[in-house]
Deep mutational scan, measured.
Amino acid sequence: MGFKLLSKLLVYLTASIMAIASPLAFSVDSSGEYPTVSEIPVGEVRLYQIADGVWSHIATQSFDGAVYPSNGLIVRDGDELLLIDTAWGAKNTAALLAEIEKQIGLPVTRAVSTHFHDDRVGGVDVLRAAGVATYASPSTRRLAEVEGNEIPTHSLEGLSSSGDAVRFGPVELFYPGAAHSTDNLIVYVPSASVLYGGCAIYELSRTSAGNVADADLAEWPTSIERIQQHYPEAQFVIPGHGLPGGLDLLKHTTNVVKAHTNRSVVE
Rank of each mutant, 00 (worst) to 15 (best):
F3T: 07
F3S: 08
K4W: 04
K4S: 10
L6A: 13
L6W: 09
S7H: 08
S7A: 08
L9Q: 15
L9P: 11
L9C: 12
L10R: 09
V11Y: 07
V11S: 08
T14K: 06
T14G: 02
T14C: 08
A15G: 07
A15Q: 06
S16M: 05
I17V: 10
M18K: 10
A19C: 12
I20Q: 15
P23N: 10
P23Q: 14
F26R: 14
F26W: 15
F26S: 14
F26E: 15
S27I: 07
S27H: 12
V28N: 10
D29I: 08
S30C: 07
Y34I: 15
T36D: 14
T36M: 14
T36K: 13
S38D: 12
E39A: 14
E39H: 10
I40M: 15
I40K: 14
P41Y: 08
E44W: 08
E44I: 07
V45H: 03
V45P: 11
R46P: 04
L47H: 05
Y48S: 14
Q49D: 12
I50T: 06
I50S: 02
A51L: 05
G53H: 09
S56Y: 15
H57Y: 06
A59C: 06
T60G: 14
T60C: 04
T60V: 15
Q61C: 04
S62Y: 03
S62I: 06
S62K: 06
D64F: 14
D64Q: 08
D64W: 08
G65L: 08
G65V: 07
V67W: 11
Y68E: 15
S70F: 04
N71R: 01
N71I: 02
N71T: 08
G72S: 03
G72Q: 00
G72L: 00
G72A: 00
L73I: 07
I74F: 05
R76P: 04
G78A: 08
G78R: 09
D79Y: 09
E80Y: 06
E80F: 07
L81G: 03
L81C: 03
L82I: 10
L83A: 05
A87N: 03
T93M: 01
T93I: 03
A95M: 14
L96K: 00
L96A: 00
L97V: 05
I100N: 03
I100A: 07
I100D: 01
K102Q: 10
G105D: 09
G105P: 07
L106N: 08
L106Y: 15
V108T: 06
V108L: 08
T109K: 14
R110L: 10
R110K: 12
A111Y: 07
S113T: 05
H115V: 00
H115Q: 01
H115R: 03
H117C: 00
D118H: 05
D118P: 06
D118S: 07
D118Y: 05
D118W: 04
D119W: 01
V121I: 07
G122L: 05
G122W: 06
G123V: 03
V124Y: 01
V126I: 07
A130D: 09
A130Q: 15
G131M: 07
G131C: 05
G131K: 11
V132G: 01
A133P: 14
A133M: 14
A133Y: 12
T134M: 05
Y135L: 01
P138M: 08
R141S: 05
L143Y: 11
L143T: 04
A144M: 04
V146G: 13
E147P: 05
G148V: 05
G148H: 11
N149G: 11
E150W: 01
I151P: 03
P152W: 00
S155R: 12
E157V: 12
G158H: 13
L159V: 11
L159E: 03
S161W: 11
G163D: 10
D164Y: 10
D164T: 11
A165S: 14
A165R: 14
V166N: 06
V166Y: 11
V166T: 11
R167D: 12
F168A: 02
G169E: 05
P170N: 15
V171Y: 04
E172Q: 09
L173M: 07
F174Y: 09
Y175G: 00
Y175H: 07
P176W: 01
G177D: 05
G177F: 01
A178T: 07
A178M: 08
A179L: 02
A179M: 06
H180M: 01
H180N: 03
H180C: 01
S181L: 02
S181M: 02
T182A: 11
T182N: 13
N184M: 00
L185I: 09
I186T: 14
I186K: 01
V187K: 01
V189I: 10
S191W: 13
S191E: 13
A192R: 10
A192G: 12
S193Q: 12
V194P: 02
L195G: 00
C199Y: 06
C199D: 00
C199A: 00
A200R: 02
Y202A: 15
Y202V: 15
E203V: 05
S205H: 12
S208F: 09
A209R: 10
A209E: 07
G210A: 06
N211R: 07
V212S: 12
V212G: 10
A213N: 11
A213V: 13
D214P: 06
A215H: 05
D216S: 09
L217T: 12
A218I: 14
P221C: 05
P221A: 09
P221I: 11
I224K: 03
I224M: 05
E225C: 04
H230A: 13
H230K: 14
H230V: 12
H230S: 12
E233Y: 12
E233G: 11
F236E: 08
I238A: 00
P239L: 04
P239F: 03
G240N: 05
G240K: 04
G242N: 03
P244C: 04
P244F: 10
G245L: 02
G245Q: 02
G245F: 01
G245R: 03
G246Q: 10
G246C: 04
G246W: 04
G246V: 04
D248C: 07
L249C: 02
L250K: 03
L250N: 03
L250G: 00
K251C: 06
T253F: 03
T253N: 03
T253L: 00
V256G: 01
V257T: 07
A259N: 11
A259P: 11
H260L: 07
N262H: 10
R263C: 06
S264E: 11
V265E: 14
V266N: 09
E267Y: 14
E267F: 08
